[in-house]
């Protein structure tokens, strides 16, 4: 999730005799002296450019709606007086939007927790339990990764119609869990399989059952993979509109659907859209930063030589 930029290594000392040698030596020396700085500056510029729309959204959400029709958000720099919390005040008192916001949470949190829970159990079984057909079954699960969501929309809609799940949060959650699991199992299984066998055997000798080994050894060691899965799954579900648009009704619609219904043909109610969009953006960011600390290298260090 985070990229590290390593400065190019110093060119090796030594006689630069060959034809291209001098050129390359010189070039790489220049890069070594200045490259680290240049690369950093370049990356910062790209990042700033990338953040521009988000920043614009934030500024817009804080502007007086009356000003918005007439001028661009950057005008705020010349007249900071137009900044106001009014838009957020009215968003928080807008029942429809708030219901949608909580719907999003009610959809996203269970979808993420269930996928992690079921996925890690399944991954442990695929990685460490012996049972007939295990590898074939795992291949099938991996194969499910390529099934597009769209293929299942109509059959599932029929199923939900029969089982009265249509228009419910449960229905949306179930759909997300089902389509999140193949990737979860795939990711976690491969990570769990990388845990040294000796560790699990040691735990077995120490008196562990499969359940205690899972909870006391595999889960703690699998945290980096689980954290990245949590972020992926959370983002997918939080940002999903297609599934919600089809299976949720007005009462169970999440923020994405609610925002979309706000964007009218002439785009006149930006005072709702901008803060709403920013709200829907800030939560995943918080989730990301919360889980980021689990991305540590070398969790396994010291386990086996």
């Amino acid at each position: 999730m985070s990229a590290t930029v390593t400065a190019p290594t110093e060119p090796t000392d030594g006689p630069e005799v060959s034809d291209g040698g001098i050129k390359r030596g010189l070039a790489s020396r220049i890069v070594a002296r200045t490259g680290g700085g240049l690369v950093s500056v370049g990356l910062v510029l790209v990042a700033l450019f990338w953040l521009m729309p988000t920043f614009g959204l934030l500024v817009s959400s804080l502007r007086d709606p009356k000003e918005m029709d007439g001028s661009g958000w950057w005008k705020v720099f010349s007249s900071p007086g137009q900044l106001t919390w009014d838009n957020y005040d009215s968003l928080l008192s807008n029942d429809d939007m708030m219901r949608a916001f909580f719907n999003t949470i009610w959809i996203t949190v269970p979808s993420t927790v269930l996928v992690i829970l079921i996925g890690s159990f399944a991954a442990y079984a695929f990685a460490w339990l012996e049972f007939p057909g295990r590898d074939w079954l795992f291949l099938v699960v991996v194969g499910l990764l390529v099934v597009p969501v769209q293929v299942a929309l109509i059959p599932i809609a029929k199923l939900y119609g029969d089982t009265h799940l249509f228009g419910t949060i449960t229905g949306v959650v179930l759909f997300h869990v089902a389509f999140g699991l193949p990737f979860a199992v795939f990711l976690l299984r491969n990570y769990f399989a990388g845990i040294p066998r000796d560790l699990l055997e040691a735990a077995r000798m120490d008196g562990g059952t499969d359940l205690t080994i899972f909870f006391r050894v595999v889960l703690p060691l699998g945290l980096p993979a689980i954290a990245s899965l949590a972020i992926f799954q959370f983002l997918w579900v939080w940002n999903d509109m297609l599934v919600a648009l089809i299976y949720a009704d007005t009462d169970s619609a999440p923020l994405t659907v609610a925002l979309q219904s706000q964007s009218r043909a002439f785009g006149s109610n930006i005072e709702v859209l901008a803060p709403g969009a920013f709200l829907s953006l800030i939560v995943p960011l918080m989730v990301f930063f919360a889980f980021q600390r689990y991305f540590v290298q070398g969790v396994m260090a010291g386990a086996v030589k």
């Binding site: 055997e201 000798m205 120490d206 086996v304």
Partner: peptide
Amino acid sequence: VAMVFQSYALYPHLNVRDNIGFGLRL
């Protein structure tokens, strides 16, 4: 029976105290 592994197989997320006491806690 207790086994000592060639790789030691210490639990990397536990400190020495918890590594040694793991079997007793289970």
